[in-house]
Write a protein that binds this DNA or RNA. Structure first.
Lengths: 122, 122
DNA sequence: ATAATATATGAATATATGAGCATATAAAAA
DNA sequence: TTTTTATATGCTCATATATTCATATATTAT
């Protein structure tokens, strides 16, 4: 499969599309637990989807202490630029819950760093 | 799965991406046999992929005699506009063979209609 | 050192999907 | 009418993929 098909396929999956959009809304690197919390998915699942996005060259990671912070790779080239624009063009109402949770999580940060980790469900 | 994910997923497949790009290059409706010929795929396969693209709202069909002509739906909305722009931005070298074949097939048309059908392989 | 927390990964499983084959349908040609 | 041509569809199979579970690793807290 060629590079372009692979990239499009990577975001043609609900959870991964939501991860990317969440990162766009955030504009700062997010840790796995913030993402899993805001998307309501398991840690394992998010971790695996992030791996795919990383292998495809859509996101990058940076380990800080016990946290691994993920963010979008900087735009390079026309294709990636249009891809991100396209994702941006999806109405935010499609990500209402995720964005609301993101705001809450960001407000829980201290000095820009995630302090609250996985919010465990009963 | 929501509408946007479905559309992205539909073009995140090599054969379907090539179909859509071929239609962009053509700018006129194409019959199934022209598409299958230029992409080097079987009739069955192309027919099935066209069905998916149709159900997703990316292409439309129009029956003319024994031919079924397929074309892209007119752009509607920002998302579809950016989607098509993104596909356009992929270098044409990635579709070299397909485009060369398309030109040949178009030159074989008479009065803008496909006359040569399936080119059967020995 | 021990426990807790954050993340990753292998195995197992269920489901989705692309492709091939045979065949059905429909229209045109003979 | 019979045959050929263009396209669609049901069935099957192999493979891909998403998800879950258990567990491993790494880092921080106690």
């Amino acid at each position: 499969m060629d590079k372009y098909t692979e990239i499009i396929k990577a975001i043609g999956e609900r959870t991964r599309l939501r991860i990317v959009r969440l990162m766009m809304e955030a504009n700062v690197p997010l840790c796995v637990c913030e993402i899993m919390d805001c998307l309501g998915e398991t840690q394992t699942n998010i971790s695996k989807h992030l791996r795919i996005l990383k292998l495809t060259g859509i996101v990058k990671e940076k380990k800080i202490g016990k946290w691994v912070m993920y963010s979008l790779v900087p735009y390079k080239g026309n294709f990636m630029n249009l891809l991100f624009q396209m994702i941006q063009s999806i109405p935010s109402t499609n990500f209402r819950k995720e964005i609301r949770c993101l705001k809450k999580r960001m407000s829980l940060r201290i000095d820009g760093k995630p302090i609250v980790g996985i919010i465990r469900k009963k």
